[in-house]
Design a protein around this nucleic acid. Structure first.
Length: 242
DNA sequence: CGTTGGATTGGCT
DNA sequence: GCCAATCCAACGC
């Protein structure tokens, strides 16, 4: 499978740049502009719901998935990798918005973030789950499972389905690399569920996780939360968990 | 330089 | 529900 690859900072003329020469406006999928990412992560995270994550490689059917769950991380946030300042690992997170920050965790998984905010600021949004839309065969092959719900429902599952690895760290999302976000359709505020971020041990008091109400593609370890609109939710209904 | 534990997942009890 | 898998960044000495 033709996987695009890039160094921490993709050099000009790299494989990624060459992909740009190939029109990726396949089926009306066009990249959201840089300014979309140049906002606070808390603003970008909910706005990502309903957007399309697209990975288009020349000659192959593009992979498309609708984002249904995200989490915001920002500077001064003890749960953020950027909390302890710039390091080799978090360098991309402190760079210009509109780039991919990929990190390796638990000795076996990759997670992908979209760098947000201003250049020099350490903020990003973690993509936690998406609804597979196109290229399911490729996703199934990479994931080794058939169930559509198990293809992209979880941060590490999502990266695996899309073939995202550390080699993609720093890749640009607005310069025709073949990996980008398309407008899709935004989710109504009343259908956005918020809650505490998953898997962290600090800053558990803030509701910086966002997901699409009722979507069966939201990761399971993230069930709690209330509706964005009004006091509508029943709190917990025993749903979720594994 | 040694230790600790993590923005997870999947398999087993 | 519990825990192993398996690497490495961050931190303490």
């Amino acid at each position: 499978m033709a996987i695009v690859q890039a160094a921490a900072v993709p050099p000009e003329g790299s494989t990624l740049t060459r992909v740009a020469a190939n029109p990726i406006d396949h089926r009306g999928l066009r990249p959201l502009p840089r300014r979309f990412y140049a906002r606070p992560s808390l603003e970008v995270a909910p706005d990502l719901l309903g957007r399309l994550l697209v990975l288009a490689a020349p000659g192959d059917e593009p992979l498309v998935a609708r984002i249904v769950e995200s989490e915001a991380y920002q500077e001064g946030d003890p749960a953020s990798h950027s909390y302890r300042g710039r390091t080799a690992r978090t360098e991309v997170m402190f760079g210009p918005p509109g780039h991919l920050y990929v990190y390796f965790t638990y000795g076996m998984h990759f997670c992908m973030n979209l760098v947000t905010g201003r250049d020099g600021e350490g903020s990003a949004v973690l993509l936690r789950a998406a609804e597979p839309v196109q290229g399911l065969d490729t996703m199934r092959a990479r994931r080794g499972v058939e169930d559509q719900r198990l293809l992209c429902s979880g941060p590490a599952r999502l990266t695996q389905a899309f073939g995202i690895t550390g080699a993609h760290n720093g890749v640009g999302l607005t310069d025709g690399t073949g990996l980008f976000l398309a407008p899709g359709a935004t989710v109504d505020a009343a259908d956005v569920v918020t809650g505490p971020r998953v898997g962290i041990t600090v800053a558990v008091d803030v509701a910086w996780r966002f997901s699409v109400a009722g979507s069966p593609f939201v990761s399971r370890s993230s069930s709690g939360g209330r509706r964005g609109g009004r006091t509508r939710g029943r709190g917990r209904a025993g749903a979720g968990r594994r």
